[in-house]
C-alpha cells in the first residue's frame, strides 16, 4: 500500500523516497536515537506521542493519515453470515481467537477494549492467542490454527480464504488512526512536499482504494 503512495509521489514531484518498513516501536526508537528519517508513519499513536514528547516530532508537522476499523475474521465459511457478537459468544471448547499482543500491539489493545465493551473479554481471555503483530494473527486464521482473529478491516480484505464476520461497532473502541509526521524540527523542502502530498486528495483516493477509511476531523 505505502509503496504505491511513494511511487505516486515520485511520479508527481520527481523527488525520490526510500521506505523502511518495521514495527512502530522499533522505528520510533531508531528515530529517537537519531536515525536519518524524514517522515514517520505509524499505526501507533503512543509512539508518535512519545516522539513528540522527546522533541523529535513537532506537533505542527503531525497529522492523521488514515483511519481503519476493527474486524473479526474467521476460518469457518459459515461464520460469514453470522454476527460478530453471536460468533464470539457461542464458541466451541477448542476455538481460539488470535489477536495482537493486548498489552502492546495497537490492534490487540483496541481489540481488548472492544471485547471489554461488548462484555465478552472475561469469557474470551483464556482463548486469546497473542501474537507479536496483527498480520501474524491473521496468518493463524489463514492456516486454520485459530478459528477467529481480531484484525483491521484492511487486513481482512487483503487475505484470501479468510472470512470476514463483521466489523466491531465504532463506539466499542478508541478511533483507529494512523498518525504521520515530519521528523525533526526543521524539515526540508522535499519532506514538506511529501507531507503535503500525503494530505492531498490523490492520497485520499489511493487510501480508499486500499480500504483505509477517511480521517474524521
Amino acid at each position: 500500500m505505502f509503496d504505491t503512495l511513494v511511487q505516486d509521489f515520485e511520479a508527481e514531484t520527481g523527488h525520490s523516497a526510500q521506505v523502511n518498513f518495521a514495527g512502530s516501536a522499533l522505528l520510533a526508537r531508531q528515530i529517537e536515537l537519531g536515525a536519518p528519517v524524514d517522515v514517520f508513519v505509524s499505526a501507533n499513536q503512543q509512539w508518535m506521542d512519545h516522539l513528540e514528547a522527546v522533541g523529535r516530532v513537532d506537533s505542527a508537522n503531525r497529522f492523521p493519515l488514515a483511519g481503519n476499523r476493527l474486524a473479526l475474521v474467521s476460518s469457518f465459511p459459515e461464520d460469514k453470515s453470522r454476527e460478530v457478537e453471536t460468533v464470539l459468544s457461542s464458541l466451541e471448547a477448542a476455538d481460539r481467537v488470535a489477536m495482537g499482543l493486548v498489552a502492546a500491539v495497537p490492534a490487540g489493545q483496541y481489540g481488548k477494549v472492544a471485547l471489554e465493551y461488548l462484555g465478552l473479554w472475561g469469557d474470551l481471555r483464556d482463548r486469546v492467542v497473542q501474537m507479536d503483530n496483527v498480520r501474524a494473527a491473521l496468518t493463524l486464521v489463514h492456516l486454520g490454527e485459530t478459528r477467529l482473529a481480531v484484525v483491521y478491516e484492511t487486513d481482512a480484505e487483503s487475505q484470501p480464504d479468510v472470512f470476514l464476520v463483521g466489523l466491531f461497532p465504532p463506539e466499542s473502541h478508541p478511533r483507529i488512526e494512523y498518525p504521520a509526521a515530519a521528523v525533526g524540527q526543521s524539515p526540508t523542502k522535499a519532506t514538506l512536499d511529501f507531507i503535503v502530498f500525503l494530505q492531498s486528495d490523490a492520497t485520499k483516493s489511493r487510501l480508499e482504494q486500499f480500504g483505509f477509511g477517511p480521517v474524521k476531523p
Binding site: 514495527g23 512502530s24 516501536a25 520510533a28 526508537r29 503512543q46 509512539w47 506521542d49 512519545h50 499482543l101 498489552a103 502492546a104 500491539v105 486469546v128 492467542v129 497473542q130 507479536d132
Partner: peptide, 19 residues
C-alpha cells in the same frame, strides 16, 4: 501468551513495544 508461552525474550519484546 502471558502465563502459557510467554518466555523471557517474548516478555522483553512485549515490554519494548510500549514506551
Amino acid at each position: 501468551i502471558p502465563g502459557q508461552t510467554q518466555t523471557i525474550p517474548s516478555a522483553i519484546y512485549a515490554l519494548l513495544q510500549v514506551p
